[in-house]
């Protein structure tokens, strides 16, 4: 039953569309753009024609301007008020749309006023033009009017404050940690130069000792008198340096300390014997 009624309704509406397609349109339409203070720029006054291709130039709208359209809506050429009379604004970049309703009287005469305050922030910050069309429609079988009227350019004169964007669950910007710089080194040749300068002091020291008469000629005499004590004492002094070197290279303190203790003990015991021999030589006047 409902289905049949639907078909019947459809047929009725179809026939009515074919027979008496009452079309919405408008007449006497004028577009004004006026600044609040007089004399600021030239006011725009253009006539809008229904069905035409629209204005050929973009209409500028700065913060002080008011855009106003005055028109009379018609149905089949007679002034009449439609249920829906919107100025449709479309931002081309994002596809965001906003409709602003006309204030109409019953005889179809009416107007709409638009300032920057009426626009969403996305329109104000848009780089592209805003496409403005007129939309007149009503119930029943009347044919709606919807056509491009003009392009609007929102002039940003610095008074527009962009609020921070609202939070959305989406992919966030990547963050890559910025590492601190590695420690800087002086040029290697400077280090090499000073390293050699330091190393050069050893030959200078040995040379000056030689010039002052330093020698090791009594080594054979000393080793002859007490070979065990001298070889152990001098050996333990070298061994102690070797222990320090191994500590520098790889040993830890627990490996170093016992070995250093043993070497130290050897040095202490053998040193007293060796130094006794040295004292003997001194008492013999050989030092």
């Amino acid at each position: 039953m409902k289905f049949l009624r639907g078909i019947a309704l459809g047929l009725v509406s179809l026939s009515s569309v074919v027979l008496a397609a009452s079309e919405w349109s408008f007449q006497d339409a004028t577009l004004y753009v006026q600044a609040k203070g007089a004399g600021v720029g030239k006011p725009i006054k253009e006539t809008l024609v229904p069905g035409a291709t629209g204005l050929s130039f973009p209409v500028g709208l700065s913060s002080a301007d008011t855009l106003k359209i005055v028109l009379t809506t018609t149905e089949n050429g007679k002034p009449k008020r439609p249920h829906q009379a919107f100025l449709n604004l479309r931002e081309l970049e994002t596809g965001l749309e906003e409709n602003i309703a006309f204030t109409l009287k019953d005889n179809g005469k009416g107007k709409v006023e638009l300032t920057q305050k009426d626009l969403p922030i996305q329109f104000l910050t848009s780089k592209s033009f805003i496409r403005v069309s007129l939309l007149l429609a009503s119930f029943g079988n009347s044919v709606p009017y919807t056509a491009y009227a003009f392009e609007m350019e929102v002039v940003n004169d610095g008074s527009i404050v962009v609020p921070p964007p609202a939070e959305r669950y989406t992919v966030k910007e990547e963050i890559h940690h910025i590492f601190r710089d590695d420690p800087k080194q002086p040029p290697a040749f400077i280090s090499v130069f000073f390293a050699f300068a330091v190393l050069a002091t050893l030959p200078i020291l040995l040379g000056s000792w030689l010039m002052l008469g330093g020698n090791i000629s009594h080594a054979s005499k000393a080793f002859g008198a007490n070979p065990l004590a001298h070889s152990l004492f001098f050996g333990s002094i070298i061994a102690m340096e070797a222990v320090f070197f191994l500590y520098y290279l790889s040993w830890n303190l627990f490996q170093t300390l016992p070995v250093a203790g043993v070497v130290g003990l050897v040095a202490f015991v053998s040193g007293s014997r060796a130094l006794t021999e040295v004292q003997d030589r001194r008492l013999a006047g050989e030092r």
Binding site: P186, V192, L199, L206, G214, H230, F234, E241
Partner: peptide, 27 residues
Amino acid sequence: SAAWPWISGIWVTIGGWLAFVAIWLYS
């Protein structure tokens, strides 16, 4: 590389110490 002068300083000290001990004992 900046540590090379200091490392060579240690080696010079070790060498000088051993030479000093030898000369003091056996001169």
